[in-house]
Simulated scan of single mutants.
Amino acid sequence: MQLESYISDLLYRYDCVTVPGFGAFLTNRVSAKVHESTSTFYPPKKVLSFNEQLQSNDGLLANYIAEIEKIPYNNALHKVSKQVRSIKSYLIEGETIQFENIGELILNSDGKIVFDPSNHINYLTDAFGLGHYTSSAVSREAYKETVEKLEATTPIVMTPEKRSNTNWLKYAAAAVLVLGLGGYFGYNYYNTSIENHNQIAQEEANAKLDAKVQEATFVISNPLPAATLSLEKQSGNYHIVAGAFRVEANSVKKVNQLKAKGYKARTIGVNRYGLHEVVYASYETRAEAQRALYNIRKTHNRDAWLLIKKLD
Rank of each mutant, 00 (worst) to 15 (best):
E95M: 09
F185S: 11
Q202M: 10
V176W: 01
L181I: 15
K79Y: 08
L124E: 04
I121K: 00
Y133T: 09
N75F: 10
N196E: 12
M158C: 06
E195D: 07
A173M: 10
E195A: 14
H197T: 15
S89P: 02
T166E: 10
L77M: 04
S139L: 14
K88I: 13
I87T: 02
Y133R: 05
A152V: 04
E100D: 10
K79V: 08
S109C: 05
E148V: 06
G131R: 13
L105T: 02
E93I: 09
L105A: 00
H78I: 14
V80I: 14
N119T: 14
L130W: 01
E141W: 09
I194W: 01
G183N: 09
T159K: 07
H132Y: 12
F128W: 04
G103W: 02
I87D: 03
L179F: 12
L91R: 01
V178M: 13
V138P: 05
N198G: 03
K162R: 13
E161S: 12
G103C: 05
K170T: 13
L130C: 03
A76C: 08
T192C: 06
I97D: 00
L77E: 04
G131F: 09
E104L: 13
I200G: 03
Y184Q: 03
N108R: 08
S139P: 12
L169F: 07
F185T: 14
T166Y: 07
L177D: 10
T192P: 08
H132T: 15
A152P: 01
L179G: 08
Y184P: 02
T96V: 10
N108F: 07
N122E: 01
P155Q: 04
K112G: 03
E95N: 11
G111L: 12
E93M: 14
N167W: 05
E203H: 05
D110H: 11
N188V: 15
L177H: 03
K149N: 03
A142S: 06
L169Q: 12
I121R: 02
H197P: 00
S89D: 14
P155D: 06
S135V: 08
K88H: 08
I97L: 04
E195I: 07
Q83T: 12
T192V: 11
V147K: 03
E203Y: 02
E161P: 05
V147F: 04
W168R: 01
Q98D: 13
S86F: 14
K88N: 11
A174Q: 09
I102R: 02
N75S: 13
Y189Q: 15
N191V: 11
P155L: 06
L107G: 00
L124F: 11
Q98I: 10
S139A: 15
Y123H: 06
Y190I: 12
R140H: 11
N198M: 08
H120P: 01
N101Q: 11
L107W: 01
V138S: 08
L130T: 02
T125W: 00
S135G: 05
L77F: 03
Y143I: 15
G180H: 08
K144Q: 11
K170P: 01
E203D: 02
S135D: 13
E141S: 12
N74K: 12
N165E: 13
R140N: 12
L130R: 03
T159I: 15
E141H: 13
G129R: 03
N198I: 15
S81P: 00
S139F: 14
L181S: 12
S81T: 05
G103A: 05
Y187H: 13
S118R: 04
N122Q: 03
V147D: 00
E148Q: 11
H197V: 15
I121D: 01
I121V: 11
T153C: 01
